[in-house]
Amino acid sequence: MKKLLILSCFFLLFLSVKPLQTHAQDAVEHYVVIGVFAKLDNAVRWTDRANKMNFSAQYAVNPANKYYYVYILKTPEKRKAFSFMMKIRVETEHKEAWVFSGKLGIEEPEKPVVKETPVVIEETPVEEQEVEEVPVVEEKPVEEPVVEEPVVEKPKGKPFLFKLVSGEEEVLGEVHVLESPRATQYQAFKGNEIVYLTAPRNSEGAFIASVQAPGFRPVEITVDYKDPGIFSSGVGPQNEIIIPIELVRSKRGDYIEFNNVRFFGNSAIFQPESKLELDGLVDLLKEQPKYKIKIHGHCNGKQSRNVVTKGNSNQFFETSTLNNRASVSAKELTQYRADLVKEYLVSQ
């Protein structure tokens, strides 16, 4: 009876501890991030640099990707985080500031300590039994089948690595490879990774590498496919051609790209996730009423298309029966979208 009572208490103790751990893990914070680094030393240097500029910067590891995030604000209020992010983008050199929602620096929860009660086992005498001898049969060794390793097919083309840097720091960005300045299609690759490119089909035998990195000015270079030596800094361990591209940070007067302001296809209606960045800009303009901004947008294509516009609806982030429908050009659709951004900012 005593043994049964002890087991029951242990089960109740375990259940009472577990929900507390789960609640702690589910807490979500919003961080205004100014840098992400794979190496701890780089995160420490970037944090020190930010603190010398009178920021209250800290760094913490993201357990999902093991990168170190340098942040200057941590808050449970999402709108407050986006408002502060807009202020930092406009008023400081950190044009690449962004909001991470989640939990940084999570540690493994300690497992509950369970005291083990000694279990007394009464030994019963074992009666000796006579064991019959079993004749030994020699077994022939079994030959293991030879497993052939799968042959990995090498990608077509030459390996390149576009190394995106600002000073001594690597920069997270995207590289667009085009055949010509007027090309409407391109291949998109992550920077600082090995990619394989096939020979261009143009007569010059060259391609354009256009770099887009949040918080940095766009850069374009023309690379000779057969002889990229003018831009290359050497060859890597996998025979990849390393092309370093130095990026310059955006300054006041440069444009700030809104990465999360998006529209429904063929419409001038915001997708719901656009609201956070727009509200961040609203709060900044309320705080600094003397600021002046210019809204710029772009749509690809030349053909007319049937689109949906806001019309008489008061909804910015969802479609409505009060929306208008019209056949417009890409340029006209761009104007509708820019007008929608302006209308939303004024309405707030």
Rank of each mutant, 00 (worst) to 15 (best):
L73V: 02
Q303E: 11
A97N: 00
G191Y: 03
E153F: 14
V136I: 09
Y225D: 06
L322C: 09
F100Y: 04
Q335E: 01
T92Y: 10
S274G: 12
E169D: 10
Y255L: 15
T124S: 11
K156D: 03
P214G: 14
L247M: 12
K251Q: 08
E138R: 11
P76G: 13
F11I: 15
R45N: 13
T184R: 01
I295E: 04
F264M: 10
P19Y: 08
V175T: 00
L178C: 03
G311E: 03
E153N: 03
Y71P: 09
G191Q: 06
A38Q: 08
F317D: 11
V165I: 13
G205V: 01
E148Y: 00
Q21G: 01
V341R: 04
S8V: 08
K290I: 04
S8C: 12
E130R: 14
V211M: 03
V126P: 14
I295M: 08
K87Q: 02
V328W: 11
N260D: 09
S320R: 06
V126C: 15
T184D: 03
Y68P: 05
A27K: 02
V346P: 11
E179H: 00
E343Y: 14
E179P: 10
K190M: 10
G236V: 12
L13N: 11
L164C: 06
G311D: 06
V308N: 08
L276T: 01
S274P: 13
K80Q: 13
V32G: 10
E96A: 11
A50N: 04
